[in-house]
Structures are given as C-alpha cells and as structure tokens.
C-alpha cells in the first residue's frame, strides 16, 4: 500500500482515467450471466476493473446488483460466461478481497469496541488463542495493533474507535467497517450499499474516503449503490444493470438518455440539476412482485435520485 496519507489531504479526486483501462484486470467478466431461483437476473455482462479503479454498480431494485457482488466472491456461480477475479476463479482469492455486506448496523447494546471489530478483520478467522509471553507473540501483537491503528487513522475514525460500536452513528460504524475490510491490505474492496441509511453529508464523506482508497491506496473498489450522485465525482466506471442486461463505461457514457433508453428498451431521460446532480426519469419501475429482501424498503427511497 502507498504511504499513508490522511483523507483530509486528498479529498480532491484525481482526474478519472479512460475506462476500462488496459492492464491486468482485477475483476473480469466476459458474457457472464446469473440465475437465481430459475430466473435469469442478467446475462451478457462484460466488465473489467483494473487496480486502483473505483466502479459503481447501479440499477433499480431486484436486478441482481448484490448477486453480481456474490458472483465475484464465488458465493453464487455464474450461469454462463467467464468470471475471473485476481487472476483466478471466483472464491479462490477471497483472502485478498475486503467485503462489506449490506447490513442494518450493529445492535445499540452490543458492547464491543470499534477497534475490536477492526481487529477481527485482521485475525478473527484464526483458530486457537495465541500464548502470551513469547517474544514472537509480543512482536505479532505490536504489528497487529500498529496496522489496526494505521487503518483506523486512514478512515478518520481514531476519535471514536475505542467506544462501543453499538453506540456509534451509522456513518461512524460504516467508516470502521471500511477499516475492517481494509485491514488486511486487500487488492479489491466490494461494498454492498454502504451509503444506505447514511445522511447526505456522510454519504459524501464516505464516497470521498472510498475514492481516496481507490486512487491513493491503489485498491480496486466496487460499490453497489442506489444513488450515483454522492459518488459521481470520484467514479472511474459504472455498471448499470436493468432489464436483464447491463451497460458499462464511464459515468458520462452510461448515465445518459440514449444509453439508458437502449438498456430499458423504452424512452428514458437523464436530467442534470443546477447543482450537478443526475436524475433518471421515465425508467420503468421494477416488477411489482419479486421475492427479494429489497422489497420491504419504502418506495420513496428508490425514486428521484438515480
């Protein structure tokens, strides 16, 4: 990982390079398809994410955004096509992937400190208990503590990492979870709707943090999002899933009327507000009936912001 720079020094995003870039891709899909419960969610998806790129996976509810993440993790086999992750089959290199599942947040009464949650990301999957007393133990513990402190500083959570995580706000919890995902120096960071349930200032701050992680630390970042606007300034690429297919490209190439109209097969307009926010208008609503965990979300949260 590149030398540590504080987020505050690097909030300005670097100029987005052309996308997809050449070079060895961290994630590569060729004609990939996903079937869940006998229903094809998407097919013919081509995607290539290189090191240090920040890519958003967008689209309406129930199109299989989370399934795409699970396919990359090897938790959901691809129904067709080829998927390669970090030079191998999905699931082979998961120790080099930091993953943030979609979640509701920690129980308010959970009495475990934020720093402990980050530490679990480092060695929580190890069996047994290290025996204290040996020099090797002391050295390892110091190295682990230093790494945890370093990554907590990177996400700007030093001020509250020693408080019980259940008592922290959603934005503070999200920063600590990003630290947990980063603590093992992954090559790829996968986040499933991390901006969900955050207020607007926190959405912007977490988006800036992720942009910094990608562009300054060289970690490829893929984020599932409902609303592209907080991310827009930092993104290198976009995958827009809808109607069983996908368009990929730079944000400008994908989030425009003609591209989305082709994808949806019906006229769609992308409006730009005076403050630079994009609003997708005319996109057909997703099928009213689908057995999906997104279904319980209030409909107001879906609209007006894509």
């Amino acid at each position: 990982m590149t030398p540590l720079t504080r987020l505050d020094d690097a909030v300005q995003p670097s100029a987005p390079p052309a996308w997809p870039s050449t070079g060895d891709p961290v994630v590569c899909l060729r004609g990939a398809a996903a079937r869940v419960g006998g229903r094809t969610l998407w097919r013919d998806v081509d995607l290539s994410v290189a090191a240090g790129e920040f890519v958003a996976v967008l689209g309406p509810n129930g199109v299989g955004k989370s399934t795409l993440v699970k396919t990359i993790l090897g938790l959901q086999p691809a129904a067709a096509g080829e998927v390669r992750v970090l030079g191998g089959r999905p699931g082979r290199a998961n120790h080099r992937i930091g993953y943030l599942p979609q979640r509701r947040g920690f129980d308010a009464t959970l009495r475990i400190r934020g720093v402990d949650v980050v530490r679990l990301g480092l060695d929580g999957d190890r069996w047994g208990i290290p025996l204290p007393g040996s020099a090797r133990f002391a050295r390892r513990r110091r190295a682990a503590e230093a790494r945890v402190a370093e990554v907590i500083d990177l996400v700007g959570a030093t001020g509250y990492a020693h408080r019980p995580i259940g008592q922290l706000s959603g934005g503070e919890q999200q920063r600590l979870l990003i630290a947990q995902a980063l603590v093992r120096r992954p090559a790829l960071l996968l986040l499933d709707e991390p901006l969900d349930s955050l207020d607007l200032p926190n959405q912007g701050a977490v988006a800036a943090l992720l942009g910094h992680v990608a562009h300054a630390e060289g970690v490829s970042v893929m984020i599932v999002a409902h609303d592209v606007n907080p991310l827009l300034a930092y993104l290198d690429g976009v995958v827009y899933l809808a109607h069983g297919a996908a368009v990929t490209g730079t944000p400008d190439e994908v989030i425009n009327g003609p591209a989305l109209s082709r994808l949806y097969g019906s006229p769609v307009e992308v409006l730009c507000t005076s403050d630079g926010r994009l609003v997708v208008v005319g996109a057909p609503e997703p099928p009213a009936v689908h057995a999906d965990r997104h279904a319980d979300r209030p409909s107001g949260a879906r609209d007006g912001s894509r």
Binding site: L73, L75, N94, H95, Y99, L100, P101, R103, F106, L110, I112, D116, V117, L120, G121, D123, G124, D125, R126, W127, G128, I129, L177, Q180, A181
Partner: peptide, 16 residues
C-alpha cells in the same frame, strides 16, 4: 476468535 467474529459480524465472518 472465530466464534467472536461470527457472533459480532456473521456475514463478514462467513465471507472470510
């Protein structure tokens, strides 16, 4: 340790 991880954060622990 894995039990603590699975108790606090089952989804992430499973992914690990």
């Amino acid at each position: 340790r894995p039990l603590l991880f699975a108790s606090v954060d089952p989804d992430v622990a499973a992914a690990r």
